[in-house]
Design a protein around this nucleic acid. Sequence first.
DNA 1: AATTTTACTTGCAAATTGCAAGTGTAAAAT
DNA 2: ATTTTACACTTGCAATTTGCAAGTAAAATT
Lengths: 144, 144
Amino acid sequence: MKKNIPVLAKRSDCAISMALDTVGDKWSLIILRDLMFTGKRSYGELQSCEEKIATNILASRLTHLEENKIIRKQLDPADSRRSLYYLTEKGIQLVPVIIELMHWMSKHNPEASECASSAKSYEQDRVGLYEEIMERLRAEHLAI
Amino acid sequence: MKKNIPVLAKRSDCAISMALDTVGDKWSLIILRDLMFTGKRSYGELQSCEEKIATNILASRLTHLEENKIIRKQLDPADSRRSLYYLTEKGIQLVPVIIELMHWMSKHNPEASECASSAKSYEQDRVGLYEEIMERLRAEHLAI
DNA sequence: AATTTTACTTGCAAATTGCAAGTGTAAAAT
DNA sequence: ATTTTACACTTGCAATTTGCAAGTAAAATT
């Protein structure tokens, strides 16, 4: 029997609306940020985020992200109690969205801290920055 | 007395988290999409979106977007019952976020429809596409 | 064998969203 | 000039979603 994993109903065929139905909740992009930029991989690590996500919400969001093929869950060979969560190529392709959101907030609020670091700069070569980060993530997440 | 406009509490200083606290709800980017790509300006026009936003939610989101200086409300000189909503420069700078989100969904779900159109293509000159759209919006929204 | 660690689930309270009906003011019609 | 309509909301309540605290199950450690 399916449990109370709230599946957001599709509102329209518009790409933005559909994207928001998939990752437009309060927590999904926070989880993806941690997978992308902090090296966190397990449930417990993800739960220890600065924003204090509730354990049931984390579980429901991970299930939803996995159902939408944005992340992939894989048993940890070193400890079979735990699973590790990896980004899929679809998940990695959210990098530009997250970088743009991060940059927008930093630009308009000086106390906001950015967490991505790179050799390339946003100002000089924005698309190069996306690609550099995505390449690193492909090496860390897809090759396993 | 302040009414029940739910102000999302700040969760952390992370730029992504703060951006989500500002525009990361279910409706804000839908409203901004309509201001950007459909020419809608009034309350009634915004309410007639395909996704059927509830009237109280629209009111609360418009107030929140205005408080955060993402949109600006201005009396319609032609009809003083109504106000018109315009993007600010800060709001216009969300164009890359929306374009990337739209493109991401379209790429991974063929039935998603994109609403932005431009002379430049996403594949050939992504940053040029952002700039073209932002320039058009500056002409429509800031010069008034 | 007992304890701890890890990853959840469960039940209930609080907050948010959604719906339907109502209010106030300005414009338009009669 | 008075009534009617249009527009932009507000209000009350129901439904859904999120948040908190405690509990469970299975593998790892002692």
